[in-house]
């Protein structure tokens, strides 16, 4: 009779296999996550290392007194509202166009996916050159067709448009690949049967393809919304949050509070607010899934 039962041995083996990943999760993700909640109730100066408990003061200051917070909050929502639909529509359109075999299919897929693996710094530097005022390539091309382009990254309204579009071009390739995989998993019989029944291409798309893409669309939407609310490097490199704070988003605001002003407690409170914002939006999308299905 063994001392440890087979079930127990299997259980121990299982835990041993997952323990490295579990340890990494607890130390590098769950621990810091819990710590941020704790820090958010303190006034902690990174430089002096002075810490004092302030309860919910950081939250009340951000939500009721700091006018910049609501500007930043609005900017984050505008960025997400601009980026998510544009990204998803482009990704699906490209996927529809590139999912069928034709000469040059791989080349075009590579072209649209290449920005995803391009370094963010290189991408931003190139676009900063292209979007220069009068001498920028984009404006010189617009001038050929008689359009006097704006100073894209220096005018508050246009800067947001510029960072959204350049971010979409950087990330759309990944969503395109996900949509291509989903499109290729739809059995050809469905569309062929619909065609035989006399359905139009729009009917096939609306009644067959789109409903079958719903699970993929939901994943893409959640990932893209979360990514858009967490965006930092693109803004940091392209506009630095300017002009006139027109592109200052939540993640950049948190960085500024924590690493430029050294107010770690305040930055942590902002991070917690962002966390709940993302959780709320993700929950909303999951409920939408129920509606869609």
């Amino acid at each position: 009779m063994p001392i440890i039962s087979l079930r127990c041995r299997e259980s121990i083996t299982g835990w041993l296999f997952v323990s490295p990943t579990l340890a990494g999760f607890l130390i590098f993700f769950f621990g810091p996550l819990i710590a941020v909640f704790g820090y958010s109730a303190t006034e902690w100066n990174l430089l002096t290392q002075e810490t004092s408990f302030v309860g919910f003061e950081n939250y009340t200051d951000a939500l009721t007194e700091n006018q910049d917070f609501w500007l930043v909050f609005r900017n984050s929502l505008v960025f997400a509202a601009g980026l998510v639909p544009l990204n998803m529509v482009m990704a699906l359109s490209l996927a529809m166009a590139l999912s069928r075999p034709f000469a040059g299919q791989v080349l075009f897929r590579t072209i649209f996916f290449a920005p995803v693996i391009t370094a963010a710094v290189a991408w931003a530097i190139v676009w900063k050159f292209l979007l220069q005022g009068e001498t920028g390539t984009v404006n010189q091309m617009l001038a050929i067709v008689g359009i006097d382009g704006p100073n894209w990254l220096r005018e508050p309204n246009w800067a947001m448009v510029a960072v959204i579009v350049t971010r979409v071009l950087k990330t759309v390739g990944l969503n395109m690949i996900l949509y291509i995989a989903a499109l290729q998993s739809i059995p050809r019989d469905y569309t062929e049967a619909a065609l035989l029944e006399g359905a139009s291409r729009w009917q096939i798309f609306g009644r067959i393809i789109w409903p079958l893409l719903t699970p993929t669309t939901l994943v893409i939407m959640i990932v893209t919304v979360v990514g858009s609310l967490k965006v930092f490097d693109h803004i940091y490199l392209m506009t630095g949050g300017g002009p006139e704070n027109g592109t200052m988003v939540l993640a950049f605001f948190i960085y500024e509070q924590g690493f430029e002003f050294f107010n770690v407690g305040y930055a942590s409170a902002l991070a917690v607010i962002m966390f709940f914002l993302i959780v709320a939006l993700t929950g909303l999308q999951l409920r939408l899934k129920g509606g869609l299905q």
Binding site: G241, G242, P243, E244, M248
Partner: peptide
């Protein structure tokens, strides 16, 4: 940080 957005104008 306070000056930067005002100078942008």
């Amino acid at each position: 940080a306070a000056m930067r957005p005002r100078f942008d104008a």
